[in-house]
Every structure is written in structure tokens, then in C-alpha cells.
């Protein structure tokens, strides 16, 4: 008993991020369905005040608190101003979120975040949210999604890496990059093209990037290629939402980077006290005989 009191229980959550249309909500849906199938409790919190429809049960929705539509209607903000207002409103009234978090004290959470990079770079809300969650003993992982269909040559791949790093820099939390919509890539040629970005050989990519760019850019290409070589965290994990193993694999990567499951207590089956009673009787009788 004293042991469990002295050690506070860690909680785990993923922030699911990426540009609009990169498949954030679909990712959440896949993970929820996968976890339901394996009997693991997972809940999704929607943080996008401009979200549309969900194909999964939403445990908590920022739109119940404030939505871009309301803000646009009553305060006459445009889409971007409205989004910023909503996120700042959330931070100002964070206790509402705390209350909701309390209901799912021990469960694994996914936060379906808004995609706009401005929210990460120009205003501190996402950083504040992460700090707040960490204060509540959450281990937070960032899952950054990019649509695989846009990655068809080294320069596009470099572009994706750089935009992922720019988010990585701002949040400074464990980070997993995911290449989504692999299942939409149909031709064998495109599949093999994508394959070389999943397990990139920086030297080959560099050669190809240099061929497709002017000489002045070669040094920059070189710099990015050597980053890829030095930092394995710049890898992209493929996500094929139609494939159960692929979803499991992505989830395992994220779990690993926030060490989910590693500090769980070893569960010893408890033996109810009354099952021990016969032994007591046994001993007490033997005492009587003596």
C-alpha cells in the first residue's frame, strides 16, 4: 500500500498533429478500432474547434466549450482568428479540460489537434497545453502525420522532414513521424518509391536531390542528408489504415517512445483473506492439542 502511494502513477497521451487533410482523424479512428479489438482502453479528445464529423466516439470535445462557428458568428472573427481565439479560450479555462481528464484517470488518451502550424509557432497555446499535461503526470508523445501521396521525390521528402522538425523544436517532447495513406498508393512503382523514404539511404537521396537542383543548393542538400544519417528520430513510420499490423506497429512505436507499459506494476494475483482462514483453523487446532 505504501509503495503505491509513494509512487504516482504515470498517465499517457498522444498529441496527433499534421497539416489539414493529412489524416489525423482517420489515424485516431484506426487506433481506437485497433485498441477496441485488442481490449485496450483508449479515448479520443477532440482539440480542433473547427472539426467536422467524427467516425469514432469522442470522449471530450472542445466544441462543447467553444467552436469556431460560434466565434465567427458572435465575435465576427475569420477562420484563423477564430481558431486562435478558441485555443486561447481553452488555455484560459483549462479546468474544464482537467475535469474531463479526471473521468479517464487511468486510460490512454489521444488528442486530435488542429493542424494549423501557426498554433504551434506563433502563439504558445500548444506548449502551454503540453506543460499542463506534464504537470498532471502525463507522458505526452507528439505524432506528426504527413500524407504519403505528397512524397514522391527527395526534395519533397526533405520538405516533410523539415516541417516535422519545426514542430519538434517547438514542443520538445518525444516525437514520432508517420507517413499516412500508404494504402492509397496503388502502383508498384510508386510503392517502391515510397519504400526508399521509409528506410532512407541518405547518400542515394542526396545524389538524386543534387541531380534535381542547382549547384548552389548542393551544400544544403548535403546538410539535410547528414542530419538524416545522424538522427534516427527523423524516420517516418508507414501507416496503412487498412492493415491491422501496420496500425499496431505505429502504436507500438509511439508507446515505446513514451515508455508506455514499462513502469506498470507487476500484477500479483490477490488471494482473498477468507481463503487463508482454513489454514488458521488448522494451526489453532494443533495448538489446542498441544
Amino acid at each position: 500500500l505504501s509503495l503505491s502511494l509513494s509512487r504516482r502513477r504515470m498517465r499517457y497521451t498522444q498529441l496527433v498533429m499534421g497539416p489539414a487533410g493529412s489524416g489525423k482523424s482517420t489515424y485516431c479512428q484506426s487506433v481506437v478500432e485497433h485498441c477496441n479489438a485488442v481490449g485496450r482502453p483508449v479515448h479520443v479528445f477532440n482539440l480542433d474547434p473547427a472539426a467536422e464529423v467524427f467516425n469514432y466516439p469522442v470522449a471530450w470535445d472542445i466544441r462543447d466549450m467553444v467552436s469556431v462557428d460560434d466565434v465567427a458568428q458572435y465575435l465576427n472573427f475569420g477562420p484563423n482568428g477564430g481558431l486562435v481565439y478558441c485555443m486561447e479560450y481553452l488555455i484560459a479555462n483549462i479546468e474544464v479540460l482537467d475535469e474531463a481528464l479526471g473521468e479517464f484517470a487511468d486510460d490512454y488518451l489521444l488528442f486530435d489537434c488542429p493542424g494549423q502550424i501557426e498554433l504551434y509557432m506563433h502563439i504558445p497555446v500548444m506548449g502551454q497545453l503540453v506543460a499542463h499535461l506534464q504537470g498532471l503526470d502525463y507522458r505526452v508523445a507528439a505524432v506528426y502525420l504527413i500524407d504519403a501521396q505528397f512524397i514522391d521525390e527527395p526534395s519533397k521528402f526533405f520538405s516533410a522532414c523539415l516541417s516535422a522538425i519545426s514542430v519538434m523544436m517547438m514542443l520538445e517532447i518525444p516525437h514520432v513521424n508517420v507517413l499516412t495513406k500508404i494504402d492509397l498508393i496503388k502502383t508498384i512503382k510508386r510503392k517502391s518509391e515510397i519504400q526508399r523514404f521509409l528506410d532512407p539511404d541518405p547518400t542515394l537521396l542526396l545524389e538524386e536531390a543534387n541531380r534535381a537542383s542547382s549547384a548552389r543548393q548542393h551544400k544544403l542538400n548535403q546538410g539535410i542528408a547528414s542530419l538524416l544519417e545522424d538522427y534516427s528520430l527523423l524516420k517516418f513510420v508507414p501507416l496503412d489504415q487498412s492493415n491491422e499490423d501496420s496500425i499496431g506497429n505505429v502504436l507500438a512505436m509511439v508507446d515505446h517512445c513514451i515508455q508506455f507499459g514499462e513502469d506498470e506494476d507487476v500484477k500479483i494475483p490477490k488471494v482473498p483473506f477468507r481463503m487463508l482462514l482454513p489454514f488458521f483453523f488448522c494451526f489453532s487446532r494443533s495448538f489446542n492439542f498441544l
Partner: peptide, 14 residues
């Protein structure tokens, strides 16, 4: 971060 994003656009737009 902003410069990284700019660099990313350089690679995207060429």
C-alpha cells in the same frame, strides 16, 4: 522553427 518551415517550403516549391 520558422526558418525550418521556410526551408521546407524551399524544397517543396523549388
Amino acid at each position: 522553427s520558422n526558418m525550418l518551415y521556410a526551408c521546407s517550403i524551399l524544397y517543396k516549391t523549388k
